[in-house]
Design a protein around this nucleic acid. Structure first.
Lengths: 204, 204
DNA sequence: CTAGAATCGGAATTAGTGTTCCGCTTGAAC
DNA sequence: GTTCAAGCGGAACACTAATTCCGATTCTAG
């Protein structure tokens, strides 16, 4: 059975407002604020989403889906090393602004969460390819990778990293992720760090 | 003028209980719970600490002081590299259990906080010595270091890292912090990571 | 245009927090 | 032992936020 037209419109408004507010305030955002921004009463939200948590879920799952999609796209990139590090950077960049993402990414240990697409699998794809290409140490597992990803996202958001600090910090982490000898790269000068050579203009 | 004996006893109890509860729950811990654990009424807490924040401050400042002391101790260690990495590890270890520490470490951007000792200066001492000894890349600044420290503490606590994951994750970060060629160390085998060689039995 | 059900808005309810208040208790000075 | 101010406990208050409820409104089938 189809929804009434106004109900559909309101549902969309609520989702949009929730996305905005949750991005800014994370799980501590209030329903009232979302309702106000959406231009509806709180009751209207509850008609569509039985609890605050379900509303969050809806938004987080959507974000996760997009993230997983992005990972799958990058999985076919020409340079698996670049793809891997770009993906890592993108997520950390996002998390400065998207508080929910971080809360969610971390809160539930990234996986679990009913209905969430298999983002872990998608990321693992990137990792394995990057390792096969020799761009990432072979002895780094998914656990460490997710731990590092959580860590940087959490800090980036919590301390509001600026672009410069983000670049410098990730540069250290990325160097740690690379094989000790960086055998495949053409540069033999150890003072050249890939991470700092990345050009942010390619975003989107 | 001296405090009444029972007041002194209660103050100590409150501090101890607060330390415990805050360690577990961070800033979201409730005064009621602290009072209960301490075996006193909430009013008793407020007699000694005018607000929740002052109570937190007292505990955080104390922790910071101990942390700074530890850093100063390690600053005279024989091997500045070991000292630096050991210190980093210790703090991350602690933060799995001590939620306040992390909240505080991160919330205020580590410095500021009235009355807190100059922990930033102490840490910088360790960093500089480690860099002079060639154990840490010279181009790593305090900002990145604190960012990495925040990041790992935050994640360690939030995701409840176990000892194994902590070791493996820090191993990656530490490798990123070392100079590319690791020139000074006697070991030439790159698969040997100092971090994983640490023996946890020396705690306390 | 009208009926009537779906939907709405936002006041009321519920629950949890930090903080204040005040009658009762207790340490310690004499 | 007496005295009494310092100190105590925890009920009461003020506030905030999630959730419920219901009279008023709005869609849509006919």
């Amino acid at each position: 059975m189809r929804m009434r037209a106004d109900a559909q419109r309101n549902r969309a408004r609520v989702l949009e407002a929730a996305e905005t507010v949750l991005a800014r305030d994370g799980l501590s955002a209030s329903m009232r604020e979302i309702a106000e921004l959406a231009g509806v009463g709180v009751g209207t939200i509850y008609r569509q989403f039985p609890t605050k948590e379900v509303l969050y879920q809806a938004i987080v799952v959507d974000r996760m889906r997009r993230l997983a999609e992005r990972a799958d796209e990058l999985a076919t990139a020409a340079d698996p090393g670049d793809a891997f590090f770009e993906y890592f950077t993108t997520i950390v960049e996002d998390s400065t602004v998207k508080k929910v993402l971080v809360d969610a990414l971390v809160a539930a240990g990234i996986d679990a969460k009913a209905g969430a697409p298999d983002i872990k699998g998608s990321i693992e794809g990137l990792l394995v390819r990057a390792q096969e290409a020799g761009a990432v140490r072979g002895d780094v597992g998914m656990e460490e990778l997710l731990a590092l990803l959580s860590a940087t996202c959490l800090a980036a958001q919590h301390n509001n990293w600026n672009a410069d600090l983000r670049t410098r910090t990730l540069s250290v982490v990325f160097d740690g992720l690379r094989p000790a000898a960086t055998p495949t790269t053409t540069t033999t000068d150890p003072s050249v760090h890939k991470a700092s050579a990345r050009n942010p203009q390619t975003a989107g």
